[in-house]
Computed example of a mutant assay.
Amino acid sequence: MTAVNDEQRTFGPLGRVLVIIPTYNEAENVKPIVQRVRAAVPDAHVLVADDNSPDGTGKLADELAAEDSQVHVLHRKGKEGLGAAYLAGFRWGIDEGYGVLVEMDADGSHQPEELPRLLTALKSADLVLGSRWIPGGRVVNWPKSREYLSRGGSTYSRLLLDVPIHDVTGGYRAFRKETLEGLGMSEVASAGYCFQVDLAWRAVKAGFHVVEVPITFVERERGDSKMSRNIVAEALWRVTAWGVSSRASKIVGRKP
Rank of each mutant, 00 (worst) to 15 (best):
P112I: 07
E113W: 08
E114R: 00
L115D: 10
P116M: 06
P116C: 12
P116A: 08
L119E: 12
T120W: 05
T120I: 09
A121F: 11
L122D: 11
K123T: 14
K123R: 15
S124H: 12
D126N: 14
L129V: 13
G130Y: 01
I134L: 06
I134T: 09
P135I: 08
G136C: 07
G137S: 10
G137V: 02
R138G: 14
R138V: 09
R138A: 15
V139H: 07
V139G: 12
V139P: 02
V140Q: 11
V140S: 08
N141V: 01
N141R: 08
P143K: 03
P143V: 09
P143L: 07
P143S: 05
P143E: 11
K144G: 05
S145I: 06
S145Q: 15
R146F: 00
L149S: 10
L149F: 10
S150R: 04
R151M: 13
R151A: 14
G153I: 04
S154H: 03
S154V: 00
T155S: 09
Y156I: 02
R158K: 05
L159V: 09
L159S: 10
L160T: 12
V163E: 11
P164D: 00
H166L: 08
H166F: 04
V168E: 01
V168H: 03
V168I: 15
T169W: 02
T169L: 10
G170Q: 06
G171W: 02
G171T: 00
G171Y: 04
R173F: 01
A174N: 13
A174P: 11
K177Q: 13
K177L: 05
T179S: 15
G182P: 09
L183R: 08
G184P: 07
M185N: 11
M185Y: 03
M185I: 07
S186H: 13
E187H: 11
E187Q: 15
E187W: 06
E187C: 03
E187T: 15
S190Y: 05
S190V: 03
A191M: 07
G192Y: 06
G192W: 08
C194T: 01
C194M: 05
Q196E: 14
Q196V: 01
Q196Y: 02
D198F: 02
L199P: 04
L199S: 03
A200Q: 07
A200N: 11
W201E: 13
R202G: 05
R202D: 09
A203D: 13
A203P: 12
K205Y: 06
F208D: 09
F208M: 06
H209P: 03
V211L: 10
V211R: 15
V211M: 13
V211C: 14
E212M: 12
E212L: 11
V213F: 09
P214Q: 07
P214L: 02
P214G: 02
P214T: 03
I215H: 01
T216D: 13
T216V: 14
F217R: 09
F217Y: 14
E219R: 15
E221A: 13
G223V: 05
K226R: 06
M227S: 06
R229V: 01
R229S: 05
R229T: 01
N230K: 06
N230I: 03
I231L: 04
I231C: 02
A233S: 10
E234A: 00
V239P: 15
V239F: 10
T240K: 00
T240C: 01
T240A: 01
T240I: 00
T240G: 06
